[in-house]
Design a protein around this nucleic acid. Structure first.
Length: 562
RNA sequence: GCGCGGUUAGCUCAGUUGGAUAGAGCGCAAGCCUCCGAAGCUUGAGGUCACAGGUUCGAAUCCUGUACCGCGCACCA
């Protein structure tokens, strides 16, 4: 409907201008119902170009425009808005469509769906996930669902950083614990991972293979073996945690295998051949002091030519590739796998990384093919309003799993979705657990359960939803609002997909629930007028269906009773 | 010092890419269950949209600067 109206206005405006050049006609949904079902500001936008008053232009447009059947009337209001009122029956027709389409309402089909690689979580396999990872996981998962809903093909991908120095540190940490378990007195260096899970891994390894065998190994061989086993154990835990949140991936992509395949060195060669790297010395970083800075010659990518601040090293002093080099190779690999678009969901602490990866992709595959990066801000975890200290060293680290186990998957997922990714998120364990007003997930689920209860009750009492439905009965203020919200759902999905803002689905669900609760309190569904009752029951059923669809996208359950 | 994000009611946040009287929840005040689920609803009080300029018919929204908070800043990931 929105597109049809926009096209009609566009045509009229073009006629007025005597010029068919594309101009953006955007319809909005007015906050006030008196302002119609849709409103256009086109007259005000054209005011400057035509050097005439917006009201006059609006009047001309109204003379020229050819409205579709569904429009009841259009009027000029305020400073020059064109407010469009639709015929009630055509608005309410959405109820029939929702009930016919069912779970598919809101989904769109595309002639040429995009193949999108959506990378998210990618938590390092050196320990359990924390709540920050959890937020990124939910954002990524819901975004994937949103993109699929509007007709794209999405591959959910997890990049495992199972290479590099950190794995050496991990292996060493486990080895120290193994020696400790064997009765040795050991000192743990500052950079060793302190968690209890390291001890568990150490214990498991000792059960599999006796200490003498480990001691007998060559040092490098032992580090490899322990590192690989520890990565595997951590990844198993991470997968289980993701599972507990209802998150699945299509691809787990190993950095180690990327190196083994030779793709990283190949890529460096390619950059070299393209003249995109050079051997040089970086100046010391400005501002923050780096104690051990030493000028050193290394291979540098010409990032500054593609919008970055400084050129970026691809090789470490010891001759091995940097993480950055592997990451370029990884993104290049995505490109080669034929994706039309790449989206990365990263934690805010990786923010400094965005420009350089985009610069590299700009250099390699062109300006328009850069990955879109969503930076998800930090989560401030509190309990009873007091901050929970997240110190790894002190061992007061709260894992994602503990939070999910404590407050439940639905509450965690929904709460992570109630704010834009750019906003830091306060998450209070106590209120998230409470079934209180402060907890939006129950508000929405309660609306679903309540609607379910009404439909159950109606069936028990013999009210029928069968037969001819006359939606012209639905003319109260609350009914119009509710219907308007139902119509809006596909538009919300489209906008969420376009702007990569999955939280919109959650705020929409809250709005729909609120409209329903208000309606429920103001009007009785079951009346002594069978025709009216039928129309209202179908409205409730449609509302319930849309709420169900939105909750499905959010990965939150829709309970019929609670 | 530089980059990114943030700053809207006492608190936590929305605000449809520049529109109509800036909205929710919590908290506060006052109401609503002999009536389909009160985990809900209604009403009220509460605002210098951080600050200062600018752009225009119109700015919480765009541009410049300032302040404060968070994250990051070679050879870790």
């Amino acid at each position: 409907m929105k597109q049809i109206l926009e096209a009609a206005l566009q045509q009229a405006a073009a006629q007025l201008l005597g010029d068919s050049s594309v101009l953006p006609v955007q319809l909005s949904r007015p906050k006030l119902k008196e302002h119609g079902d849709y409103a256009s500001n086109i007259a005000m936008v054209l005011s400057r170009r035509l050097r005439r008053k917006p009201q006059e232009i609006a009047a001309d447009i109204l003379r020229l425009v050819r409205w579709p059947e569904a429009v009841e009337r259009a009027e000029i209001a305020g400073p020059g808005f064109i407010n469009i009122h639709l015929k009630q029956a055509s608005e309410a027709g959405v109820i029939g469509r929702i009930l016919a389409e069912g779970d598919a309402y809101g989904w769109q089909e595309r002639h040429t769906p995009m193949r999108i690689c959506l990378e998210f979580v990618s938590a390092n396999p050196t320990g359990p996930m924390h709540v920050g990872h959890g937020r990124g996981a939910v954002v990524g998962d819901v975004l994937a669902a949103v993109l699929q809903a509007v007709g794209h093909e999405v591959v959910r991908e997890y990049y495992i950083n199972d290479a590099g120095a950190q794995i050496g540190v991990l292996a060493n940490s486990v080895w120290l614990r193994m020696r400790e378990l064997a009765g040795e007195e050991v000192v743990f260096p500052d950079n060793a991972y302190p968690g209890e899970y390291i001890v568990d891994i150490a214990r498991a390894l000792l059960q599999e293979t006796p200490m003498e065998t480990w001691r007998g190994m060559d040092e490098e061989e032992r580090r490899q073996a322990i590192g690989a086993a520890a990565v595997e154990a951590n990844m198993a835990a991470i997968r289980a945690d993701l599972e507990a949140m209802g998150i699945r991936f299509d691809v787990f992509f190993s950095e180690r295998k990327l190196h083994q395949s030779g793709k990283v060195t190949e890529l460096i060669e390619k950059l070299k051949a393209d003249g995109l790297i050079y051997e040089g010395v970086l100046p010391p970083p400005k501002g923050k002091q780096v104690a051990d800075y030493k000028p050193v010659r290394q291979w540098l990518f010409r990032a500054t030519e593609f919008g970055d601040d400084v050129d970026r090293p691809l090789m470490k002093q010891d001759g091995t590739p940097t993480y950055f080099a592997a990451d370029i190779a990884y993104h290049f690999d995505k490109h080669q796998r034929g994706f039309d678009r790449m989206i990365d969901v990263w934690g805010a602490d990786h923010g400094g990384y965005v420009t350089r990866v985009q610069a590299a992709m700009k250099a390699l595959i062109g300006k328009d093919r850069q990955p879109d990066v969503l930076l998800v801000q930090m989560v401030n975890l509190t309990r009873d309003g007091k901050p929970v200290r997240m110190s790894k060293r002190a061992g007061t680290f709260v894992t994602l799993r503990e939070v999910v186990d404590e407050v439940g998957r639905d509450a965690v997922r929904f709460n992570f979705m109630t704010r834009r990714s750019e906003s830091q998120l306060d998450f209070d364990l106590t209120t998230a657990k409470q079934q209180s007003d402060e907890n939006p997930v129950y508000y929405v689920q309660y609306a679903y359960a309540r609607a379910s209860a009404i439909l159950r009750k109606a069936a028990e009492q013999g009210f029928s939803e069968e037969g001819e439905a006359d939606f012209s009965h639905l003319r109260t203020h609350e009914e119009k609002r509710l219907i308007s919200a139902l119509i809006e759902y596909p538009e919300v999905l489209a906008k969420a997909a376009e702007r990569l803002e999955p939280y919109r689905v959650a705020t929409y669900a809250m709005r729909l629930a609120a409209d329903f609760h208000s309606y429920y309190h103001k009007h009785r569904v079951m009346t002594d007028n069978p025709s009216l009752t039928r129309a209202r029951l179908l409205l409730i059923r449609a509302m319930r269906q849309v709420l169900h669809n939105a909750l499905t996208v959010l990965g939150v359950s829709a309970p019929e009773r609670m």
